[in-house]
Each structure stands twice: as C-alpha cells, then as structure tokens.
Amino acid sequence: MLPRMLRFLSFATLICALLSAPLAAAPAPARAGMPDPDLRIDLHCAAAFAIAATEQARGSAAAMRLPPLAVRGKRFFAEAGTRAVGQGGMTQEAVRDLLVADVSAMQRRAAADPDRALVAEVTPCLARLDARVPPLKTPDLSQCAAILTLAWEEERTRAPDGAAARDLQTLAQVLAARAHDAFIAGGMSGDGADAAIETSREAMRKEAATRPGGVDNYDIAHCYELAAPDAKSHY
C-alpha cells in the first residue's frame, strides 16, 4: 500500500495526467528562462488541477466537492504550459521539471491531511480557472441526447459490436425519449418534438465540428445524471 502522503497522487499517475495534455507546438526559446510571477502561479495551479482531476476520477470525496476538473483543468494546464514555452521563454523540459517539483512540495504538505491539503491547493486557483477556461455549460435533455448520440457514432466506428457502443446507444435512446416526452409535456406535437430533437442533434454536430473544444464545453457528467434509471424502472 502506498504511504498516506502518496495516496494524494503517485508520480506515475501525475505524469500520465500531465502528458495527456501535451503542450501545443511553440517556437523553441533561446533560453530556459523562468516564468513571471503570474505565469508561475498559473503553472502551480495547473499541477494542482492535475492532482484534483486524478483524485476526482478515483472518486475522492474531498475532490468531488470541487468543480469538475477533468476537462477544464486539462485545458488550463495545456494553455499555461504553452504560454510558459511561447511567452515565458521556458523549454518544455523546464516546464515539466517545475511541475514535478510543485507536486513534490504539495505531497510533502499533504502528509498529515491529504484531503484538506487538496482543497487548500485548488481553492485559491479556481478564480484563475474561471478567468482562463469558462465553466462548462449545463446541457438540457435534447442536447444530452445529441452529445451521447455523437459519442455512440464515434465509438461505433471503432468497435461497432463493443459494449461501450451498446451502452452509449442505450443512453442516447433513453435521453432522446425523455427529451421527446418533455417537449410534448411543454405543448409540442409528436412531430414537433421529433423535429426539435433533430435540430438539437444537428446543432451539436456542427458545434462539435467547428467550435474549439466541441462537446467538451458541456458538462457531460450531467447527461449521465439525466439518463439515470427512474426509481421504479430499469433498462
């Protein structure tokens, strides 16, 4: 079992989290350099977000009380790293070393109480996150049906008979049916509800193809909540 301080985040997990958001290409700087104070804080926050996102993926109760960071934290990290290279004069290796040093320091501070330390590291960074990466939009039922339909179509091209494709198809169908019922409850005809769902699907398809971030600008976890089985039903 890992020592308690390393439950906060193992180095292997950290590196995987950081490398999953590689720095965008930028001109090679003439010197390794050091970031200015504001950028230095952003890089520290990027490391804190990587830790928190990993802990959220593990289901940590303390981490789950923070805003979802898997998408926005990753984007913040990528943008901060790119600015450090392109504007701050740092090499990618220097950025990585600085982040690893930050995590080492955070692990030491987390030895006594990892959960409290996690919240203490991330909370001061949330205003920067909101300024750099706007909060995710909350999709409605028809938008969720569209998002899960697109996910199903993508997964189907990779593994048409796989369990993931079947699960996504089921979720998309459940959401579409609930959106249909909601439109009818709001006074639409059946044909009108069908048309509204199709309009949402095509709008989401266009957004996924043309807007930076695509469907990742939405709180997709909310869609899974909307698709959860009713208390008296199952699927």
Rank of each mutant, 00 (worst) to 15 (best):
P3T: 04
M5P: 02
R7L: 10
F8I: 15
L14W: 04
A21G: 08
P22F: 03
P22L: 06
P35L: 02
P37K: 03
D38H: 12
D38C: 03
L39H: 03
L39N: 03
R40A: 14
C45E: 08
A50H: 07
Q56V: 10
R58I: 09
R58V: 06
R58T: 08
S60D: 15
L69K: 00
F76P: 03
A80R: 00
G81F: 04
V85R: 13
V85A: 12
G86L: 06
A94V: 03
V95C: 13
L98H: 08
L99R: 11
A101R: 10
A101E: 09
D102V: 03
Q107R: 15
Q107H: 06
R108K: 14
R109E: 10
A112I: 00
D113M: 00
R116K: 11
R116Q: 13
A117R: 12
L118I: 02
A120Q: 14
A127F: 09
R132Q: 14
T138N: 09
P139W: 11
Q143P: 08
A145E: 13
I147T: 08
E155K: 14
G162R: 04
Q169M: 13
L175E: 09
A179D: 09
D181S: 13
D181L: 09
D181K: 14
D194Y: 10
A196I: 13
I197A: 09
E202N: 15
M204L: 13
A209Y: 12
A209W: 07
T210Q: 12
G214I: 06
V215L: 15
I220C: 11
I220M: 15
C223S: 08
C223W: 08
A227I: 04
A228E: 12
P229F: 05
K232M: 13
S233P: 03
Y235D: 05
